[in-house]
């Protein structure tokens, strides 16, 4: 406010906002203070009511972010304290299933499902993003980009329905093939898959479809920002379109793709409805993604159990929620660090 250009001719229609304390108008005690008050033409800017209101609103909105985040963190910590206190590991509890035994498989299932989804979604997303940014004619690129954004707007419960009702029966043939011929890979090992295919593989596919739009949209933006001069440099050396993409576009967009993937990973970690509606839950550390009833995710577990939870169980659920909060926090921090580092370079 104080740095805005001063209006030398005070207009009578704009009066000082009522209630603005005069003390706040005193020149700042910084090094610029004295020189400013000596120059009559650079007096304090008038305080206009519109400015004051808008400043207040935007500062307030900014503070709400901090407040909300702090409240959520405090809630998670305080309400999960009973579970920590009663646990065999940290307190004097003697539950049949310890807190660690309860949480760890859920963390495993959550991260496993999200990583599988990421592995499936990232290559496809990069492909779509490159197609839109560098291969598709403009007539096609615009509607395609629009459709990708539309896909992001589909509610997760709809993806859950689609996955649970349509996709689950369709996957049986593929899973049997994978199990028979690629069973030597731990992922596809285990007993012959039995319908319904409500296993982690199907859940991950649904998750992959759900995180596809965000990764594609962000990657596309990054690819489109590749400096024209860089691409021309490659083309003028006799690079084909693919060689131009490989030597210029992909290196330029790498950090953006990484951060887009992290955003997708964050969404996959927290996704609830789709997993709840597709996956038949279990509590193991099994690598067999085709086996039913082996895995569950934190979010889906909370959603399915919280309605009829006793206070003990609720504290445990909130503890898993705290763990999920921390995991997503770390993922996002990592993504930002990567982007910041490449922005400096």
């Amino acid at each position: 406010m104080s740095s805005s250009a001063a209006d030398p001719a005070p207009s009578p229609s704009q009066t000082r906002a009522p209630g603005a304390p005069d003390a706040a108008d005193a020149p700042p005690s910084g090094p610029t203070g004295p020189s400013r008050s000596e120059d009559p033409r650079r007096g304090r800017a008038k305080r206009r009511p519109g400015d004051m209101i808008f400043t207040g609103l935007s500062v307030g909105s900014g503070l709400i972010i901090f407040l909300t985040l702090a409240l959520v963190a405090i809630f998670l910590t305080v309400r999960s304290l009973p579970a920590i206190r009663d646990s065999r590991e940290f307190g004097g509890g003697a539950d049949a299933v310890s807190l660690w035994e309860f949480t760890a498989p859920l963390v495993f299932g959550t991260v496993f499902a999200a990583v599988l989804a990421l592995v499936m979604a990232v290559p496809v997303s990069i492909g779509i993003a490159l197609f839109i940014s560098h291969f598709a004619p403009r007539r096609l690129a615009t509607p395609l980009g629009f459709m990708i954004d539309l896909l992001a707007a589909v509610p997760s419960v709809v993806f859950g329905l689609w996955g649970g009702v349509w996709l689950v029966p369709k996957m049986q043939g593929l899973y049997e093939l994978l199990n028979t011929y690629l069973g030597w890979i731990p992922l596809f090992a285990g007993p012959e898959p039995e319908p319904p295919m409500r296993n982690l593989a199907t859940a991950s596919i649904v998750l992959a479809v759900m995180i596809l739009p965000i990764i594609t949209a962000v990657s596309r933006e990054v690819f489109l920002q590749t400096p024209r001069l860089q691409e021309e440099a490659a083309l003028a050396l006799g690079a084909t379109r693919w060689e131009t993409i490989r030597t210029v576009v992909l290196p330029f967009g790498r950090a953006g793709v990484v951060s887009a993937s992290m955003l997708g990973l964050g969404r996959a970690l927290g996704e609830t409805m789709a997993v709840l509606m597709v996956l038949s839950p279990g509590s193991s550390f099994s690598l067999h993604i085709l086996e039913v009833g082996q895995h569950n995710t934190i979010a889906a577990n909370i959603a399915s159990q919280s309605a009829e939870a006793t206070p003990d169980v609720m504290a445990r659920l909130i503890f898993t929620g705290l763990v999920l909060f921390i995991i997503t926090f770390i993922i996002n921090a990592l993504a930002r660090a990567i982007v910041a580092r490449s922005a400096r370079a």
Binding site: A233, L237, V248
Partner: peptide
């Protein structure tokens, strides 16, 4: 055109080495 550009090189208005 790819072969043409391999025989006819080009230098641009602004220096554009590959940044990576």
């Amino acid at each position: 055109p790819v072969n043409v550009r391999r025989r006819v090189g080009m230098v641009f208005q602004k220096p554009n080495p590959f940044p990576t």
